[in-house]
Design a protein around this nucleic acid. Structure first.
Lengths: 109, 109
DNA sequence: TAAAAATACTCCATAGGTATTTTAT
DNA sequence: ATAAAATACCTATGGAGTATTTTTA
């Protein structure tokens, strides 16, 4: 799965307080959530959520990661929406100035 | 591929000015870069880079996306490094206060 | 004609699902 | 006894590679 989707999954887990509920919310199976969370934790080398089969508790690392993740996903959603809607044309020259290595785009030729 | 990796790929393309060069930098094949960029653009419904087989030009949408992407990837790298290093325990109570729905984590029982 | 990007094609790894087991209230 | 998470197992999709073709300076 996409790591970003795993992050969204994690956010849903934290906010719903349940793997099963998160699974329902996201229309995936419960094992999928289980496995993705485990994979995410493995990559990070840290437990994000303490399981207890009846209750979940977010670890300090999990809390940190949760907050960052929410911000990151929001940022991403914002740009993608802008781009999707073609709102990405601010003040032509400014963008060109910010451009790193290339001449400004002037369309196909 | 992971969307985040595709974003890193895009960043490398923009900064190197070449699909082939980006591929070399990232130790993947050139078609991989080609396909991932295409997939990314498809998802966004927008062209990010104007190809020209001899020169690339970043489109305005591409520039917007590039800037956001750099920020996002940096943010992500930062948290992940913190978490990886167990630096995520700031001021105990503050974290607990910020926590949304659950009781603070007190370790296994 | 030389370079870079796109396309065709193949193969394998992984992500997801269903079924089941384990755990704890 | 019930509800939730973990584990086992299987399958299929898609992501990566190699080889080739297309394109344009």
């Amino acid at each position: 799965m996409d790591k970003l989707d795993a992050m969204r999954m994690f956010v849903r887990v934290v906010e719903s307080g349940s793997f099963s509920q998160a699974a329902r919310d996201l229309n995936v199976s419960q094992p999928t959530v289980s496995k993705q969370l485990a994979a995410l934790e493995a990559r990070l080398g840290t437990q994000l959520v303490a399981r207890n089969s009846r209750a979940l508790a977010v670890t300090p690392a999990g809390q940190d990661y949760y907050e960052a993740t929410v911000r990151i996903l929001q940022d991403l959603d914002f740009v993608e929406e802008r781009v999707l809607e073609g709102q990405s044309v601010p003040s032509g020259l400014v963008r060109v100035t910010l451009s790193p290595a290339f001449r400004p785009y002037r369309g196909r030729h």
